[in-house]
């Protein structure tokens, strides 16, 4: 079972760090990166309209940076809410930020579509915790298990 992960961050280095850490998890995953919210939204929109869901990349997880110019994480969420895919698929969104601003954390938690908050930088441990929170019965690095349906 492949885990599709979508990374949205305007900072290329952070995208790189996240990508590398996910690769280290040694799970069967495919990653798509976006350096702004708009392109991510339009990508998600296309999934919806082309209606060709078999071969398409449909994210199971989205790691979303909060502090981005033009469209920040919260603005992304409100755009995301309007997409059909947000209702059709159970996509888990985790919000990321470098600063431990309590307001961000509270806001993030009050968002219906936000599953959690992760303080940057991302590392293997934090990713593990993230996956584990959805599969508490699994051991670490055991995401290949086919009888588990992530979706």
């Amino acid at each position: 079972m492949k885990v599709n992960i979508m990374l949205i961050d305007n900072n290329v280095i952070d995208l790189f760090v996240s990508q590398k850490n996910i690769e280290k998890l040694e799970i069967d995953s495919s990653i798509k990166t976006f350096n702004n919210g708009f392109s991510a939204i339009s990508f998600l929109e296309k999934i919806n309209t082309e209606n060709n869901q078999q071969s398409m990349f449909i994210p199971d997880f989205i790691l979303l940076d909060i502090n981005m110019p033009k469209m920040n994480g919260f603005q992304f969420l409100s755009a995301f809410k309007k997409l059909d895919i947000s209702k059709e698929r159970n996509i888990k969104i985790f919000m990321l930020s470098a600063s431990n601003n309590i307001k961000f954390i509270e806001n993030a938690k009050s968002e219906r579509f936000c599953s959690g908050y992760i303080e940057k930088p991302i590392n293997v441990k934090k990713l593990n915790n993230m996956f584990k929170s959805f599969k508490p019965f699994l051991k670490e690095f055991d995401y290949h298990d086919n009888d588990v349906n992530i979706v």
């Binding site: 900072n11 280095i13 590398k20 470098a98 600063s99 601003n101 930088p121």
Partner: peptide, 21 residues
């Protein structure tokens, strides 16, 4: 202030991530 704070913290976090890698 929050903006400044974040903009200062963000590169620290990136560097930390890179160093861990």
């Amino acid at each position: 202030l929050n903006r400044v704070k974040h903009d200062i913290v963000a590169p620290f976090a990136s560097a930390e991530g890179l160093l861990e890698l």
